[in-house]
């Protein structure tokens, strides 16, 4: 079942005299429970493509349809609501809310979605256990390592059972041990929760573990390799 359909999407920045084609005619589909990496050199359009898929940016041309909804048809406020209910985000710099504990960070999205407390608590504990942080539920981000913070961010992204998770360079700020642990956790959750993961990455370890590797160059898809 197709979760994401990208049809001939272009993103052109014309803020300077010379127009920049950050994404140039990309057509891709992602199915349920995929574990895909988008790779390519710096400036190849990886992050721009993720932002377009995540509804954070609007394509100049082309259509992106997520679970049957064409993002172009949504107003700004509807897009925010759509992201809340359908997409999980993991950022390079973790971006946890510094004043909240690990538990509160994970349950934040569920609170915005007005989940009942009991379900929220159960899901939070289940996810923190899954990312190996059940003993750090009351720790604030400042008291955790980068790897632990990124694991909390993954738990937060998965909390409300989104259609898919977008992770922009999730291991870029982590040492190799933390990065490996994070990748193992994400792969496990992808398998258990049947949630599609799409990464943009430079990290060879991520590429090695991905089930599908899409390579971008100058905003174009130059290869799309599915591994068994």
């Amino acid at each position: 079942m197709k979760v994401i359909e990208i049809r001939d999407v272009h993103k052109i920045y014309d803020e300077t005299e010379v127009a920049v084609r950050a994404v140039d005619g990309v057509t891709l589909n992602f199915d349920e429970a995929e574990f895909a990496a988008i790779v390519g050199p710096s400036g190849s359009g990886k992050t721009t493509l993720l932002n377009l898929i995540g509804g954070l940016d609007i394509p100049t041309l082309g259509e992106i349809t997520i679970a049957g909804t064409n993002l172009r048809t949504l107003k700004s406020s509807e897009l925010i609501d759509f992201r809340l209910h359908n997409i999980g985000f993991v950022f390079q710099s973790y971006n946890l809310i510094p004043v909240l504990s690990a538990k509160e960070n994970v349950e934040f999205i569920m609170t915005l979605q007005k989940w009942p407390r009991k379900e929220r608590d159960d899901r939070t504990f289940e996810l923190l256990k899954a990312v190996g942080l059940e003993d750090r539920i009351n720790s604030r981000p400042a008291k955790m390592s980068g790897g632990q913070q990124q694991r909390v961010a993954v738990a937060r992204a998965l909390a409300s059972r989104p259609k898919f998770v977008l992770a922009d360079e999730p291991t870029a700020n982590l040492d190799s041990k933390s990065a490996s642990k994070l990748l193992e956790i994400m792969e496990k959750l992808n398998h258990e929760e049947k949630i599609t993961f799409i990464f943009s990455t430079h990290d060879a370890r991520v590429v090695k573990m991905a089930h599908r590797v899409i390579t971008l160059e100058d905003g174009k898809v130059v290869s799309d390799e599915v591994r068994e």
């Binding site: 406020s77 985000f89 950022f91 971006n95 915005l112």
Partner: peptide, 16 residues
């Protein structure tokens, strides 16, 4: 600004 941008990115609406 980064934190507020992140909150809006992950789905916290403008009213909130």
């Amino acid at each position: 600004t980064r934190e507020l941008g992140m909150l809006m990115a992950i789905g916290m609406n403008r009213r909130k």
